Simulated assay, not measured.
Amino acid sequence: MIKYRLKNPQSIDNTIRNQLNLSDREFAAEIGISRNYFSKIMHGHTPGLRARLAIAKGLGKKTEDIFVAD
């Protein structure tokens, strides 16, 4: 099974806060995942396909621009 992780969690966090003007909680709610799950992803947890797609869409990016396979 391929595991995926964020390429650059700090960059994602900066985008959410500075460009989207949202907290992590607000962003997670907007894309339809729990804040707790989003926090786990930001700290290295492997997200499922639905979460990867939701995060990428919420950021206006392609999944391959955000996630890397381990």
Rank of each mutant, 00 (worst) to 15 (best):
K57T: 08
N8V: 06
G60M: 03
T46H: 06
A54D: 02
F38E: 00
S11P: 04
H43Y: 13
N21Y: 06
N21I: 09
Q19T: 04
E30L: 05
Q19R: 11
S23K: 14
P9Y: 11
I55E: 01
K3A: 12
D13Q: 15
F67S: 08
G44F: 06
Y37K: 13
P9R: 14
G60V: 01
R52F: 00
K57N: 02
T15M: 14
E64K: 11
A54F: 04
I12A: 09
A56T: 05
D65W: 00
A51V: 05
L59V: 04
L59E: 06
K40Y: 05
F67E: 02
K40P: 02
L22E: 09
Q10W: 10
P47K: 02
R5T: 06
S39K: 15
A29Y: 04
A69R: 12
N18K: 13
M42Y: 10
I55R: 07
I41S: 13
I12W: 00
R25A: 14
I31M: 02
H45G: 01
K7Y: 04
P9W: 09
R25I: 12
Y4M: 01
R5K: 14
F38T: 01
G58N: 02
N8H: 13
I2T: 08
T15F: 10
A51Y: 00
R52L: 04
R35K: 13
E30G: 01
V68D: 14
N8A: 13
I66M: 07
A28R: 10
S34V: 08
I55S: 02
G58S: 06
K7F: 07
E30I: 01
L22T: 00
I31H: 09
K62E: 09
D70P: 03
E26V: 07
I41F: 10
D13P: 10
G44P: 12
F27W: 04
E26L: 09
L20Y: 04
F27D: 05
N18G: 03
L6K: 08
L20H: 07
M1H: 14
D70L: 12
I41C: 09
